[in-house]
Nucleic acid binder design. Structure first.
Lengths: 223, 223
DNA sequence: GGACATTATGTCAGTGAGTGACAGAGAACG
DNA sequence: CGTTCTCTGTCACTCACTGACATAATGTCC
């Protein structure tokens, strides 16, 4: 009843005029709606009461499903906050893999992060809301950090394959460092962008960071 | 009974010959022993059965205390794995704060990380064991990542105070980037050191990483 | 339209981490 | 010795999460 996206009343794409064809059955549409409803209900409550102050039971109740069903859609309570993480990760890896083979890892990462940036740029509002929720719970910060760490491992693997195909002589340690550094750049840029409304765009923040990394931290090099 | 460090039988510092003086009462000694016993029992089981395969009840039982008591010593099950994290963090911050005021942030961080490295060097065995346990559970990786992230915020704050006292003109974003990058260097160096037995020392790994960062990632600079 | 296989969901029972409240045992201290 | 302080165990509870089973809805084939 309180649910913003009630499966019973909402019908953005009714049964008439199946513009997408019957390949997408009623079942799948229902599932998608329930999923969205859970996300919205969760987000609304997280923003209002904080992450720890919201129970799964509450979210499920708001969408008129059982708590058990919630966990069939999202493996953990945290996951309802990061619905598109998997997709973004795949896109990032794809961009890296499709970069020119002779490009250094740093450049490939920079390009990939820029792609990700335009991605983020599209739903800034969602990002801001999410970051506020994350700030409310150390538990969530841990979850987010874990995700980033998980990304790094996958990125390093792709870079390693690329290097191998090129017979390049880079150590795994070097690739790990470059990846960690690039990830750090993205993270800092995102934090700055989200925390500073109506300021510079995300691309600008990101470019700044990468330029800084490119020029190095040698103290005696401005001479 | 299974407890390696049974408070009833172990007496490294018995009541006779109080070399440390009566200022440390029986109560405190008992507490310290229980704490150590819990850590050891936990570590032993984590290594053998993994983190998720070990319950707090099991650990408590091994030391003949109630589960409730376990949580009086360690706020979470994860914390029993990182007993000295707080101390290390304080030392790191202290080193940074005591660095020459006109030193750039990058240099100060490099020095501080080196200090931390000798610290880590002393109990390599514990580190290796711990990293294996951490690898066994994604949950734990998240916890570790959160710790590192928490460190970063504190480090940035110290650096900011330093810069302010010097009337230096560095942005907070710059400091965040430098800190994130230095943390990344330490993390990569630690991983490499722990994963590669009888290889180079931690200092070497760390120096390599910092040299790499110092020289920058500019593609066209070898000319 | 009816029979049958799929699949989503609800219910139930259970594990395990973590917490608050209370009472009792023991140490510290006069 | 008695008093106070603190550590601990017990009990009861919340909440995230899981496995098993039954049921109802959907998809499919004829």
């Amino acid at each position: 009843m309180v649910c913003h996206n009630d499966p019973m009343t909402t019908a953005v794409e009714p049964s008439v005029g199946p513009s997408v064809g019957p390949s997408v059955g009623l079942r799948e549409r229902k599932k998608a709606r329930t999923r969205e409803a859970l996300q919205e209900a969760a987000m609304e409550r997280f923003s209002r009461q904080g992450f720890d102050g919201t129970t799964v039971e509450e979210i499920a109740e708001a969408c008129e499903v059982s708590p058990r069903t919630f966990f069939r859609y999202f493996p953990t309570k945290e996951d309802v906050l990061f619905p598109d993480a998997a997709g973004r990760r795949e896109r990032l890896l794809a961009v890296i893999a499709e970069r020119p083979a002779d490009e250094p890892a740093f450049g490939a990462l920079r390009a990939a992060m820029s792609t990700l940036a335009v991605d983020y740029h599209h739903d800034r509002d969602a990002l801001v809301a999410r970051s506020q929720v994350v700030a409310s719970s150390p538990h969530l910060q841990a979850y987010k950090a874990e995700h980033q760490h998980g990304w790094e491992a996958a990125v390093v693997e792709v870079l390693e394959r690329r290097a191998l195909a090129q017979h390049a002589t880079v150590t795994r340690e070097e690739l790990q460092l470059v990846t960690a550094v690039a990830t750090a750049a993205l993270r800092v840029a995102l934090d700055a962008w989200v925390g500073d409304p109506s300021g510079r765009d995300l691309d600008v923040h990101l470019d700044d960071a990468f330029v800084r990394l490119a020029s190095g931290f040698e103290p005696a090099r401005a001479g």
